[in-house]
Design a protein around this nucleic acid. Sequence first.
RNA 1: GGCGGAGUAGCUCAGUGGUAGAGCAGGGGACUCAUAAGCCCUUGGUCACAGGUUCAAAUCCUGUCUCCGCUACCA
Length: 547
Amino acid sequence: MPDRPRYYLTTAIAYANHKPGLHTLYEVIGADVIARWHRLKGDDTRFLTGTDEHSVNIAIRAAEEGLEPRAFVDARVGEFTDAEGALGITPDRFIRTTDPDHVAAAQEMVRRAFANGDIYLGTYEGWYCPNEGFKANSDLHETAAGWQCPNHPDVPLQWLTERNWFFRLSAYQERLERWFLDNPGAVQPDFRRNEMLGFIRGGLEDFSISRAGATWGIPFPIGEDGQTAQREDGSWDPEAGTIYVWYDALINYITGAGFLSDPDAFGRWWPADLHVIGKDIARFHTIFWPAMLWSAGLEAPRKVWIHGFLLLRGGERMSKSRGNIFDPHDMIEAFGSDGTRYVALREVPFDRDAEVSWEAFVRRYNADLANDFGNLVNRTVSMAGRYLGGERPAPRTAPGASALGHAWSETLPAYAERLEGCLLHEALAALWDFVGAANRFVDGEQPWVLAKAAKAGDAEAAARLRDALGDLVEACRVVGLAAAPFLPQTAPRLLAQLGHSFPYGPDGNGGPPILDELAWGGRAAESGTLGFPEPLFPRLDVESVEG
RNA sequence: GGCGGAGUAGCUCAGUGGUAGAGCAGGGGACUCAUAAGCCCUUGGUCACAGGUUCAAAUCCUGUCUCCGCUACCA
């Protein structure tokens, strides 16, 4: 079997403390589109999503609900996988930081850093909220009475010191800066890259990677004496503490590639081609993570893409704690799974923040999906069926013969380039420019006029009618197929209406290279029977749709 | 405070020296294949403000105002 290009991409793992909102799933939808695109291209693709389940905060939340941490996160994980399923997300593995192979991987990474001399015992100092643990100054309020925890203003903060293991991040400052300079595409978009570069140049401090008191976490594998913290019965010495969540969470990306558990797989999948993450965790992924990998003798990821946030009107940040989230289930009910995927990725540029609103989503759905694209397919299938019978008309494929074919030859490369460059909103814009061209083509050709003339015996009109409708059917085919990563449920239904098959599996695997399929006239030689024109995206009445 | 970015039509944005643009929203029209969709036309802007350079500035320079991002251990 010839080697296919491989493509390994991940999302950030979701913090399993609340049920997921659209602002969390947004990133997963975008990454799923990229994963599907690579599968459709024929790349050997591995896509990882999952949940981050350790930390003191999780244990506190669980206690608030009267649950053991494990039972608490199990429930959260179920909500997350349900939401992913409802949105057509297709991870090749849904990883949990409580998975046994991940626990082993994180502990091995600590051992490797220790063996490399990058971990040492030190003292961590900071404000400590008895209810939440150590807090950064930026998370606290300074009042006349001193510093306060915003969540527990009545509980006095304590200045505590804790004996912790530290990771020697400072040792990697020069190598990190060189990595940024030598690989300008590794951290993107550019303005995020510049921010991270500035942070590096400002000087890097070592950071603590263990938590002494915490019990809900991965046991720290090394004791203060430098020996293993594992006891003869296999249990871990609680005195060694647990691994700080970031030295746990990031490692999921290599666990999911087979680190430790499957060295052959790991050799094939690592380094990852793409980590898709939010701007709030850019530093961990572009600075801490490469250094952690290098310390263990592994390669840094090839690319980290940093997206923005969904904001409410006025720029207010959406967050679980404020409760001002879009519930994905409400959106799926209104727009369907594909409609939700589309409006989220079209309304929010994948490289920056955007304000979103229910009204804007409805407008976008109606304008792009119902009116422009859905109606194009509907009028095309309807006319072709009525004027030409059930046989699918063939497009004009001779060079220069079809204006739409020519337009497509410019649309496709632009679409692919933007998609592979993570500019998903611009990829859709390119595709929809072509949809507009197809709608204008209909009005220019006026097939209904040609049909009357043909019926009256005008052979020239009959030929022109057949050609125009052939081009239009082909335009619908290539757009529907190209949009399949965004609209995975719609694509097969659309192609069926056109009398074409959709030669890919539910996750996009197993078919011919999509770039071959997307050539204008790529299936022109095949005959087919048109299906019934059924609206793909029913228009929504703005008044009747509740947010 | 430091570094970086932004301020252009009601909204979202493109436009880095040569007569202000797109999409959406609003208004009008012709058509009728279609999901009252599509198509055509159109209203709408002292390009944040003030200076400066230039034959010419949204664009280059200086200053001011406003907003935003980053400025390390919640994740």
